Computed example of a mutant assay.
Amino acid sequence: MTTKLESLELALKHALGEGAAISSALGEVTVVVKAADYLASMQTLRDAPSLAFEQLIDLCGVDYSQYGEGTWDGLRFAVTTHLLSVEHNWRVRVRVFCPDDDMPLVESVTGIWRAANWYEREAFDLFGILFDGHGDLRRILTDYGFIGHPFRKDFPITGYVEMRYDPEQKRVIYQPVTIEPRENIPRVIREETYGTK
């Protein structure tokens, strides 16, 4: 007798063919597709009656540049999507790697699931991943004057600029970061009776 997870893997292999790498770990199934097959695979995942993944529940960017303590030698950026089939009561994770590290770009799935709109905007804003075919790809969490993409591993923790209100100019201004590096020294309590009362 096959388990529900095995049934899902079999249905995925049948619908997606040899172009997708399917694996399962810790009770979850992950499908890795090539960027060229991404849009067609996502359409199949939604429309195939044996799968019926009618809901996109999450989409996010991933920066693998320091994955495995820097031992990762694959492509740097990926888009990971979680899909839900209410009809079959199962979930799947789909991962696609952006073929160009300098200009990460994959197809937009907003034409398949409208819920992907803000998720793709977030991945663009935080990771700099571009989604071809997205109708309104602009920043969603940082302000429009923000420089860089803060979730990239090479983005400095302090950022590049800070905002403050200038009372003389009566407006918000940008200026270089003024945080001075300092060394925190922990306070040591040296009492003979500490913790005994």
Rank of each mutant, 00 (worst) to 15 (best):
W90H: 09
G111D: 13
R95Q: 10
G159T: 02
R46A: 07
M42A: 05
V33E: 01
T178H: 01
I129A: 06
V29F: 06
I185D: 13
E87C: 00
I57E: 06
H82F: 06
G17S: 01
V96R: 03
Q43H: 07
T196L: 12
L12N: 06
F151V: 02
M42F: 07
H14Y: 04
W72R: 06
L83H: 14
T110G: 03
F53R: 09
R152S: 04
L8V: 07
A25W: 08
Q66W: 08
Y144G: 11
D125V: 13
A21Q: 14
N117D: 15
I189Y: 10
I140R: 00
T44F: 02
K13Y: 00
G135P: 13
H88D: 05
A78N: 03
Q175I: 04
H134A: 07
A40Q: 12
R76G: 04
V109Q: 10
Y174I: 02
P176E: 14
I189K: 11
R152A: 08
D37T: 02
L137A: 01
E28C: 00
W113K: 11
A35P: 00
I22S: 00
G135E: 03
P99S: 04
R182N: 04
L83T: 11
Y64W: 14
G128V: 08
I57N: 10
V86W: 05
D101C: 05
E28W: 01
D136K: 12
I147E: 15
D102A: 13
K170W: 00
F155W: 14
E28G: 02
W118T: 10
P99R: 10
R93E: 07
L5D: 11
I185N: 13
Y67H: 15
L10C: 04
P176K: 15
F146W: 14
H88I: 01
G70K: 08
T196W: 05
F127S: 04
D73A: 05
R46F: 03
G111H: 05
H88M: 00
I112P: 08
I185P: 03
G19Y: 04
V106N: 04
I22N: 02
Y119G: 01
Y119Q: 15
G68S: 11
L59N: 12
I22A: 01
A115V: 06
T193L: 14
C60Y: 12
E54K: 01
T142D: 10
F146A: 13
R152W: 03
T193F: 15
V79R: 04
F155D: 13
G27W: 12
A25N: 15
K34H: 11
Y144P: 06
L105R: 14
G70H: 09
